[in-house]
Amino acid sequence: MPPEVIDALAPLRLMDPPGVEPGEADSSLFSGFRCFTLARADVSVATIYTAQAGLFRTTIRHGGSPEQVEEWDPLVRSFEKRGVFCLTEPDHGSDIAGGLATRARREGDTWVIDGEKRWIGGADAADVLAVFARDEADGQVKAFLVDRHAPGVELRIITGKVSLRPVQNAHITLRGVRVAEERRLGGVNSWRDVAALLRRMRSDVAWIATGLQAGALDAAIRYTTARQQFGRPLGGFQLVQEKLARMLGNTTSSLALVTALSANQDAGTWSDENSALAKMVTAERARETAALAREVLGGNGLLLEHDAARFFADAEAVYSYEGTHEINALIVGRSLTGASAFA
């Protein structure tokens, strides 16, 4: 990710824009449209910005003590301190709730952390890692603000990705990393607290999936109105127009869903099943919409010089991150039936 991207975005103060009341800027609807607009331009940019504005900031604001929020939130909003959310592990993704293996033990006023984290986007450019670890004393999950360059922290970039290529995902190893008690987030003391954070984060991803669709549709319209085949624009053929109409239908219905989700959240209704349903549906629609965009470009849809290829590849990452289709479906199914189908 070129540093010029954040250098250009940070001064815009998209987390606390001038002229917008703090309550409005902190609303789910505002952050949602921010995700939508960035993703419509580029999903990698939306992902790396939301790593700071969504994942890391949410962890601080809703996982920290009032004193920690007062100290850290201004630094996060200004990008003076960049941070990332470190939950997923090499052997635990969908089963992280019960399988989280990174350990923390307290020694006086210091915690010692050992473990590994994987798929941590933007960690290479971060100052701070929000690391989730299981307390050896009580078995509960806690969260810690770990300096990126602290002794015992080793970071290796994951190579060979086909999606979100500018986003550098890292495999992080923590060996005897020492963290002061004041860097433990006071509001995270169980998996229930982590789940409350994920509930908020999943909403942002649904908005990103919707913005991805709008970007793919933009790319398809640009191409099909300019490309000539059989002596007329490609967009003048019936079968092409049918695909464009389906893309618009997917995008519009996704936008309606996430707007309703955010309106409910801003009214005080936060539920796992609502955010899970939104992420599940919009990511699935994003996969179809991006595939249709690639399809109407023909062979040129496989070339990175045409935007459809980028949205097509990135849809695969959005489909999987912040909860796979299957995991989100089980959250919704549990709400519908009252029976948990998780293993």
Rank of each mutant, 00 (worst) to 15 (best):
T159D: 13
G98M: 05
W119R: 06
R165A: 13
S94C: 09
G152D: 02
R183V: 03
L145P: 01
D91S: 14
V128S: 07
R183D: 15
R148K: 11
G139Q: 12
E136H: 08
G152A: 08
H171N: 11
R184I: 00
R184V: 07
A133Y: 04
V131Y: 02
L155I: 08
E107Y: 10
A150P: 05
H171I: 00
W111C: 05
D138K: 05
G139V: 07
E116D: 07
I158V: 10
L174N: 05
H171S: 12
I113G: 06
R175P: 06
A130L: 02
A126W: 01
C86N: 08
R103S: 11
I96Y: 07
L185R: 07
L185Y: 06
R184M: 15
E107Q: 14
D147M: 04
H149W: 09
E116I: 00
T159R: 15
R183C: 14
H92T: 01
K117L: 01
V167M: 12
L155G: 00
K117D: 00
E136A: 15
D135E: 13
E154P: 00
D114W: 02
R103M: 08
G93K: 12
I172A: 06
W111S: 06
G121A: 10
A97K: 09
L155E: 11
A126S: 13
W119D: 05
H149S: 13
L100E: 05
G160M: 02
Q168C: 15
V128N: 03
G139A: 14
D147Y: 05
G186D: 05
V146K: 04
D114K: 00
K161V: 03
R165F: 05
C86K: 01
L185I: 07
G99P: 07
C86I: 00
L87A: 07
R103I: 02
E107N: 14
G115L: 02
V179W: 03
V146G: 05
A143S: 12
V141K: 03
L164C: 09
T159Y: 10
G152F: 01
D124M: 12
V179Y: 03
D135S: 12
D127I: 00
E116C: 01
E89M: 02
L155C: 10
R106S: 10
V177S: 10
G93L: 11
G176H: 08
L185T: 02
E89Y: 03
I120Q: 04
